[in-house]
Structure formats: C-alpha cells, structure tokens
C-alpha cells in the first residue's frame, strides 16, 4: 500500500475571522513496512495532518491518494479505506463502550462487514497480538488497568486488519513498562506483518530508538523528513521549533566540548556506549 499526500492544505474555520491555516502545502509518501515518527511542538499541525491519512479530515486543498486513487473521489469507498488505515487516537481507552472486551474489539470488523464468526476470529487474533489473554474476553473493559485498556483499544483497531496504523501519542500516561510493551508490539507489527506504522510522539528518546524515518512538523509544514540520525543533526533548528534532541546527544556533545574527541551524531544508548568505549580504551578493547 502506498499513501500519498499531495500539496495538502487544511484551514480551520474557513471564511471566519478565526480562520487558521493548520497545514500548508504538505507532500508525503508513506509505504508498507515503514516505521515513521512524527514530532512537532504542540500546535505544529501534526494531529491535524494524521487525520488526513484516513480521511477523517478533508483537505481544503490538495489530494490524498491511496495506491494512486483519490480517497475523496465520490466512487471511492472511504469507509473501507478507514478500515485499511487504522487510527489510534490519544487515550484510545476513552472510546471503549461495549459490555465485554471481545464485543468491543468486534465493533470494527463488524462495521467492515465481516460475519459474526469472522469478526470474532479477527478480534481473537488482535487480542492475542496485544497480549490480552482469553480469560479476560468476557470482562467489562472498564474493569481493566490503564495499560490493559489501552491495549484493548489498540486491538479494536488492529482487528480491522489494517495495512497502515497511525497512533497519536500511544504511550501518553503509561509507565515505562506499559510504554515498552506498546513499542514492542508496534515494532513487531511493522517487521513481521509489513504494516506501515506512523507514530506521533513527544519523546525524542522513543523516536530515536524506534522510528526508521522521522518527520518534523513546524507551523503546518514538513521541516525535516529523513532518518532520525540525520534529523537530529539539526539541533539548532529543532530547538528553535521548541523541540529537543535525545538527551544522550546532548551528553555526547558536552563530552566532546570538554575535550574528548567523540562523535556527536549519536542518538541512542547503545551507540553512545560503544563510542565512549572506543575512545576511552582505544580500538584494541573494542567489543570486549
């Protein structure tokens, strides 16, 4: 699947004095199997942008193409497209409504037009992917812990068997254990099933660790679109946009400034460790 955004522009409150141009001329192509991170200061337009991917918002200019077809074309089945491009909003547990977990997860597949049996099978598969065991199926979603609720909500989207998954801050409010579980799941979905994963996040550390491609939004435009290593080299520009680089990069930078010749384009713990070992012990002990 190839999703293409062509010259997208989006204005809120068109024609009113409060008209705001939230997205200005954005061009993007996202393909199956990609793991894309989107970062940006609050109000940079990233939440507005992702709502175009599955047609929840209709751009006021430009077009959204899925495998070459305009998703807003009258003949195009946009509800089908929405099942294909799954969207997980911030705090998705707030959308749970059924009396049992399994029924809630069936909601999407049933809307997609699956038979009851098939929907149940799809739901079961999705729940096992997110690690919800069978003994919980008949429980009310409101009895679960915060982290479990979140995973059930994600299963509700996965059960529609999407080819692309978009998540708006999927780990907000979770503790480190809950967060790691979510990212592990996303990485697996991307690597094993070839699902394109798009994550909006405020955590530079998480993005450096998991994203293979990083998009930086600033005032409604794409400022950078590259591999995280390259994006985080633009430290000054990122800081001007109210963003930062991973803490480890700052530390490496300070070590370099203190007179130790380390590389400063490092964005994760592993590389930082290797680099420091290399510099402090010389090549001979490297990898010991």
């Amino acid at each position: 699947m190839v999703l293409e955004l062509k010259n997208i522009q989006y204005k809120y409150n068109v024609g009113m004095s409060s008209e705001i141009e939230a997205i200005k001329d954005v061009n993007l192509v996202i393909k199956s199997g990609e793991f894309v991170g989107i970062i940006g200061h609050t109000g940079s337009g990233k939440s507005t942008l992702i709502q175009h991917f599955n047609g929840l918002l209709k751009p006021t200019g430009g077009e959204v193409l899925c495998d070459g077809e305009d998703i807003f074309d009258k003949k195009y089945d946009i509800r089908r497209h929405r099942c294909n491009v799954g969207m997980v909003f911030q705090y998705p547990e707030h959308q749970l409504f059924e009396s049992s977990i399994i029924e809630d997860v069936c909601f999407g597949p049933l809307n997609k037009g699956l038979s009851k049996d098939d929907a149940y099978k799809a739901a079961k598969k999705a729940l096992s992917l997110v690690g919800i065991t069978e003994d919980l199926y008949e429980k009310s979603p409101f009895e679960l812990s915060g982290g479990q609720k979140r995973r059930v909500a994600i299963a509700g989207v996965l059960a529609m068997d999407p080819e692309m998954l978009i998540l708006d801050e999927p780990t907000a409010g979770l503790d480190p254990v809950g967060r790691d579980a979510i990212y592990k799941l996303l990485t697996e979905l991307c690597a094993e099933k070839g699902i394109a994963v798009v994550v909006v996040s405020h955590s530079m550390e998480d993005m450096a660790k998991y994203a293979k491609r990083l998009i930086v939004m600033y005032r409604g435009t794409v400022l950078f679109d590259d591999v995280p290593n390259e994006v985080f080299k633009h430290r000054d520009e990122l800081e001007k946009c109210g963003l930062t680089v991973p803490k480890i990069s700052y530390i490496m930078d300070k070590i370099m400034q203190a007179g130790v010749p380390v590389r400063t384009d490092i964005i994760n713990m592993e590389d930082a460790k290797e680099e420091l070992i290399r510099v402090l012990t010389g090549f001979k002990n490297y990898g010991k």
Binding site: E205, K247, I251, M269, K273, L276, L280, T281, N285, K288
Partner: peptide, 15 residues
C-alpha cells in the same frame, strides 16, 4: 536517568 544508565553500561564494560 540517561546519565546514570550510561555510566552503568560503561561500568559493565569495565570502564
């Protein structure tokens, strides 16, 4: 914290 973890990882490697 990042600093602590880095120090810990380095120590493990014999630094």
């Amino acid at each position: 914290p990042v600093v602590t973890e880095l120090a810990y990882e380095l120590k493990k490697e014999g630094i």
